[in-house]
Simulated scan of single mutants.
Amino acid sequence: MELRQLEYFVAVAEERSFTRAAERVHISQSGVSAQIRRLERELGAELFDRSARVATLTPAGEAALGHARAALAATGALGQAVGEVSGLIRGRLTVGMVTGCTITPLFDALAAFRTAHPGVELTLLEDASDRLVEEVRGGEVDLALVGTATAPEGLESLTIISERLVAAVPPGHPLTERDRITLRELEGRTIVCMPRGTGLRTVFDRACAARGLRPAVALQAGAADAIADLAARGLGVAVLSESMAERYRDRLTALVIADARDPALLALIWREGPSPAVREALRCCRRAFDVTTG
């Protein structure tokens, strides 16, 4: 019994046609028929009822189909395992990143991964952090860089950045004379912030709710650049993380929000028991972000 015989047998069973099966496995119909006849002789039973136009499995064929599929799957797994040991990672890797991401070490990591493993089909997509978390849980995304308030339950995570929130205002704003502000003082001001579903907004909303406050988030944008531009034009007080605000220090002054003590996190997330491709991508990310723990 040969693996190609099992492959042809499964192809005919799934296509319900010797002709279409031959096209699928790229050999002649006579070659498929001959190999299946040989398999039937070895098993001592006919696998297909050939009396009709459609190739139909006999009871013996029905009994054999699951085992044939399992044997082919086991062979594929064997090849994958050997490939992993040899460093020949293959397959697909879908990476997600929070909308508006400008974290260049992630791009450095992806470039290093592609160079080391050109056989992996790499896909990159943007989405809101809350949706990316669910897409990782559901297996649609293998690895994602998200903003979050806490490590998502049921997933593995590696924190890249952990920092406090700040309020940022343009030159000439009354608050520029200060170096800190409270959430209650922000309540009566127009706020420019990221939309719900982002990690930064979740941290801000939770801090406000814990004190019974409801600041007016009148302007929302998914990218830090847009938030900074709106605040620089005097349209509101921007709520950003410390490193975000630092990028705009030429046009915005950052004030520590004294009573927003819980940090906003930027983290890589993935499911337990990661594939070889995910493990290798994580290695590249740790190196690019210079993270040696987690």
Rank of each mutant, 00 (worst) to 15 (best):
L3V: 03
R92M: 11
E246T: 14
E2P: 01
P171Q: 11
Q80C: 04
V203L: 04
T293I: 04
A71W: 02
T19F: 00
T123Q: 00
A260Q: 15
V169K: 02
L6E: 10
G83A: 04
W270A: 05
D179L: 10
R214T: 12
R4S: 04
L200H: 11
L282R: 15
L145R: 04
E156D: 07
A45W: 10
L106R: 08
R286Q: 09
L3Y: 02
C101E: 14
E280R: 08
H117A: 08
E15P: 07
L155T: 06
L72K: 12
G100I: 15
T293H: 13
V291N: 07
A260T: 15
T253S: 15
S17P: 01
G100Q: 14
P276W: 05
A216M: 03
F9I: 00
I27F: 05
L268M: 11
A207E: 09
L110P: 06
D179A: 14
R131M: 12
A264Q: 12
R271E: 07
E42T: 00
T202M: 07
G222M: 04
P171L: 10
R16T: 06
S17W: 02
V120H: 06
D127Y: 05
A260K: 05
L200P: 03
Q80A: 03
R287K: 12
P152Y: 00
A60M: 09
L57N: 01
T19D: 00
T190Q: 13
L165Y: 12
G212D: 01
R211F: 01
R24I: 10
L230G: 01
A277K: 01
A63I: 02
L240A: 12
L255Y: 06
G100D: 15
R69Q: 09
D225Q: 02
E177T: 08
T202R: 07
V98F: 12
D290Q: 13
C193Q: 15
A223L: 08
G83K: 04
L186E: 10
R279N: 15
V166S: 04
T115M: 05
A77G: 10
A63G: 08
E134Y: 09
T176Y: 02
L200T: 14
R38T: 10
I257E: 13
V141P: 08
L255C: 06
E135I: 09
E46Y: 09
T99I: 03
E134C: 07
L88A: 15
G119M: 07
Q220P: 14
T123N: 02
P215G: 02
S241D: 03
R90M: 04
I227D: 08
P276T: 13
A55N: 04
T292R: 13
L65T: 00
G61T: 02
D259A: 13
I227K: 06
L213E: 01
D130H: 12
R184Y: 03
A207L: 14
A128C: 11
G31R: 07
V239G: 10
R69L: 14
